Amino acid sequence: MSDSRRTAPEFPAWPQFDDAERAGLIRALDQGQWWRMGGTEVDSFEREFAEYHGAAHALAVTNGTHALELALQVLGVGPGTEVIVPGFTFISSSQAAQRLGAVAVPVDVDLETYCIDPAAVEAAITPRTRAIMPVHMAGHFSDMDALGKIAANAGVPLIQDAAHAHGTSWAGRRVGEHGSIAAFSFQNGKLMTAGEGGAVTFPDAEQYEQAFLRHSCGRPRTDRRYLHQTSGSNFRMNEFTASVLRAQLARLGGQIDTREQRWPVLAELLAQIPGVVPQGRDPRCDRNSHYMAMFRLPGVGEERRNALVDALIERGLPAFAAFRAIYRSDGFWETGAPDATVDQLAARCPNVEALSADGIWLHHRTLLGTEAQMHTIAEILAETLAGV
C-alpha cells in the first residue's frame, strides 16, 4: 500500500447489456402494440419474474416507488393509519405511505446487518398500525422469522421493500415465499434495470387482481364502457421496458453468484483496515444479492465521512455516502410525519444516527470485478483514510 497515487482500475460498466436486450426491443417493436394491453412482453416478464422469486403473482409497474405505493394501498393503508419503516432507508419507503395519507413511523435498525430491528418494530405498533415495512438493506434479508411472528401476533401485514433484494433468499425461502407482498425497483442503479420500472409480487390472486385494477386507473381488462371499479392511477409498464427486463432477469443469477464470491474477499480485507467495519451477515440470509458493498467508519463523523467519499471518487472508486436518516430530510415532514421532533426520533434510533453519519457504500458493479480488484479497493481505502 505504498503508492499513495494509486487509482482504481476500470470496473465493469453498469448497466450491462448485449444482444439479448437488442433482440427484446426489436421483438417488442415488431409486435406493433407497445402497451401491455396489446402486447405480450409485460405478461411474459411478470410470469418469469414471479417464478424466479417464488411468488404466485407479479405485477409490473412504472417504478419502485409506485410499486410500494400500490402495495400499501392494496393493504388498506390510507388516512388514519400508520406504517412502520426503518429510519435508515431511501426515502421512498416512507413517502409511499405518506402520499397515501398515512403516517410513516421510523424505527431503529440492526447495526450489524443495517436492516430493521424487530424489537423496535414491536415497540412501535399501535392500534393504527396498518403495515410493517422491512427493507432488505443492500440485499441482506431482514429477520423475517422474528418479523413474521410479530406481524402475526399483532395482526398487521408485512410488506417487503425488496428494491435491493432481487434474487435473494432467507433460510432457503425466496422473496415471494414469505407469504407477504413485496415491492421491487428497476431504477438505473438497481441489480436489474431498464432505466426505470418496478414490480409487486403477491401471495394470492385476490391481492393481485385488486392491484391490477388500481395500477390501470381502476379499469378492468375487458372494460369497453369506462366503468372504473376502484380509484387508482396509471402505473402500467410498457412493452419496451419489459423486453429489456426479461433479458436483465436472465443474467441476474450469474451476477449474484459473482458478487457472492467477491464480497467475502473484500469484507475480510476491509475488516483488516483499522477503523473500518464491513456490513455483517446473518447466516440465515443464505443468498445476498449485494446491491451495495457497505461498510462503516464508527465515530468518524459526517463531515469527515463526506470528505472521504469525495476523495474515494477522485481515486476512481464509485463511492457514496450512506442514506441520511429519513427524518433528517425536509421532505419527510411535509406530510404524514409522526407526532415527534427530529431529536425525539433520533433518540429512538441511535443505530440509524450512527449509520447516517459514518456509513459508506460502493456501487455493486465493483463486486463484478476481479478478486485482484478487491485488493485494490481495500488498498485505496486504507491510503485515502490515512490522508483525510
Score class of each variant (00 low, 15 high):
residue 90 F to M: 14
residue 98 Q to G: 04
residue 138 A to Q: 00
residue 117 D to T: 07
residue 104 A to C: 13
residue 154 A to Q: 04
residue 134 P to E: 09
residue 152 A to T: 14
residue 97 A to D: 10
residue 115 C to Y: 01
residue 100 L to I: 06
residue 107 V to K: 00
residue 121 V to E: 04
residue 143 D to R: 14
residue 112 E to C: 08
residue 108 D to A: 06
residue 152 A to G: 11
residue 111 L to P: 03
residue 150 I to M: 04
residue 97 A to W: 12
residue 112 E to H: 11
residue 148 G to R: 12
residue 97 A to S: 13
residue 132 I to R: 00
residue 141 F to W: 09
residue 151 A to I: 01
residue 122 E to K: 01
residue 148 G to F: 09
residue 90 F to H: 15
residue 124 A to G: 03
residue 92 S to P: 09
residue 144 M to A: 04
residue 96 A to E: 14
residue 99 R to D: 13
residue 141 F to P: 01
residue 119 A to H: 01
residue 147 L to C: 05
residue 151 A to V: 07
residue 133 M to T: 06
residue 146 A to R: 11
residue 144 M to H: 14
residue 133 M to W: 03
residue 140 H to L: 10
residue 93 S to D: 11
residue 94 S to A: 15
residue 104 A to L: 13
residue 134 P to I: 06
residue 109 V to A: 07
residue 154 A to L: 04
residue 143 D to M: 08
residue 125 I to W: 02
residue 140 H to I: 09
residue 103 V to D: 02
residue 115 C to I: 01
residue 129 T to G: 09
residue 108 D to H: 04
residue 120 A to H: 00
residue 127 P to M: 12
residue 100 L to N: 08
residue 121 V to A: 01
residue 89 T to K: 02
residue 151 A to F: 04
residue 147 L to R: 05
residue 148 G to M: 09
residue 110 D to E: 06
residue 130 R to F: 03
residue 99 R to W: 15
residue 116 I to N: 02
residue 104 A to S: 15
residue 129 T to R: 08
residue 128 R to H: 12
residue 101 G to Q: 12
residue 124 A to R: 00
residue 154 A to P: 02
residue 155 G to V: 08
residue 91 I to L: 15
residue 113 T to H: 10
residue 153 N to F: 05
residue 151 A to Q: 05
residue 133 M to S: 04
residue 139 G to I: 05
residue 146 A to N: 04
residue 113 T to L: 03
